[in-house]
Amino acid sequence: MIVGVLGPAGSYSDKAAKGWIKKQGITDSSTLIYYDDISDTFSAVIEGRTDMGVVPIENSIEGSVGVTLDLLLESDVTIIGEIVVPIEHCLLSRGKMSDIRIILSHPQALAQCRQFIKTHFESVEIRTTGSTSHAAKLANEFDEMAAIASKESAEAYGLNILMPNIQDRKQNHTRFVAIRRTDRETVDTSTENAYVHKTSIIAYIGDDRAGSLYELLGEFAKRNINLTRIESRPSKRSLGDYLFYIDLEGNASDAIIKDALYHIESRVSMLKVLGSYNGYQLDS
């Protein structure tokens, strides 16, 4: 199995992909291919260069990953699994604390450590990178550079952990989803140590009228279907026009879920079922 992830090695996506493979009990040899950004990971899946991809979708501090949500709408892919990874950002460098003049990291990681940076490095230059592991790789070049990244990145690139666990909120988790090109989809039957089955959809109401969202959500409520997440995102068609990303408990093949989706489809301009899947959580 060939799996595409945001790289280079040592990224949280890397950790998520390896964790998902292990939780699935996949015994054949798996190869991870690292890409520079999330868009490239999607492209590799769609073009068949990888069997699947693992991408971040949501962080408990900074919220959703917009590019992932957009590409789930635009791409012909199916979500086949999710894994939640505890995030422990560390300050990594080849040099000492007093040497640091530049801090590098992914924008999400920088945002998750905003207060730490302000408190300890207010006058330091901040540079963004494509991933936390890319920041660690660059920080290996000069003593004056530091990266905000994982302890795995420190090991991968020979850096010292100057300060561990530096995110502003200690309970920090990122949710990743495993995606596969829709026409290559296989049914995931693994349930050991998994969450209940979850289904993700995107709904576009289109007709902006009073009560339309209430009616959509009512189809779930009257069937006692629990929604675990609902988020609006601009449709990019006009200001104030939104899509709704919804996660719910249950499988799209369940009679009650199937009935709800059938009635919702008649109330919206577009309904896309992203997939039904199991979820796992990695230990620290």
Rank of each mutant, 00 (worst) to 15 (best):
Q112S: 09
S13E: 00
M270K: 15
I61D: 01
L92S: 01
G206L: 08
G4T: 04
N160M: 12
G10W: 00
K151N: 13
S39I: 11
R229W: 04
I61Y: 03
K236H: 14
E215I: 12
R267S: 13
K258G: 09
S253R: 06
D207M: 09
E58I: 10
V273N: 13
Y204M: 03
G240H: 08
D188T: 02
L227M: 03
L72D: 05
V77L: 06
Q112N: 10
Y242D: 05
D283C: 12
V196N: 15
A136M: 04
G10N: 00
I205S: 04
S150R: 01
A255I: 11
G279F: 01
D143M: 13
I103W: 02
A210R: 14
P86M: 00
G63W: 06
S266H: 14
H134L: 11
D36M: 13
H134P: 04
S123V: 07
R229C: 10
G250T: 03
E47N: 14
K23C: 06
R114G: 09
I26L: 08
A111T: 11
Q167E: 12
G48C: 07
P234S: 06
A136S: 05
D188Q: 06
D70W: 15
P107E: 00
E144N: 12
L274I: 11
V268I: 05
Y195G: 07
I230K: 08
S98Q: 14
R127N: 09
R267H: 15
M145S: 08
N278H: 13
K222V: 15
V268W: 02
V196W: 09
P107Y: 02
N226H: 13
H89S: 09
T119M: 14
L71R: 12
L110C: 06
V3E: 02
K236Q: 14
S13K: 00
S200R: 13
K137A: 12
I87S: 01
I201V: 07
G206A: 03
K18E: 01
I126K: 05
A135H: 03
T189Q: 10
R49I: 13
H120T: 11
E88I: 07
L282R: 00
N59I: 04
I46E: 14
P8T: 08
Y12Q: 03
E249L: 12
S123P: 13
V177S: 00
R209V: 07
R101A: 13
D241V: 06
D168L: 01
D51G: 10
I264Y: 03
I246K: 07
E58K: 11
L104M: 07
D37L: 05
L73N: 14
A16T: 02
G19A: 06
P86A: 00
S131M: 01
D28P: 09
Y262M: 11
S150L: 01
D76R: 04
R209S: 12
N226F: 11
H106N: 07
F176Y: 08
D183F: 08
T41K: 02
R209I: 06
E125C: 11
S235E: 07
Q24S: 10
T228F: 07
E125D: 12
G218F: 04
R127H: 09
A154V: 13
L243K: 11
Q171N: 15
K236S: 14
Q108I: 13
E47Y: 15
I126H: 06
D283A: 13
Y35K: 09
E125I: 14
V84L: 04
M52Q: 11
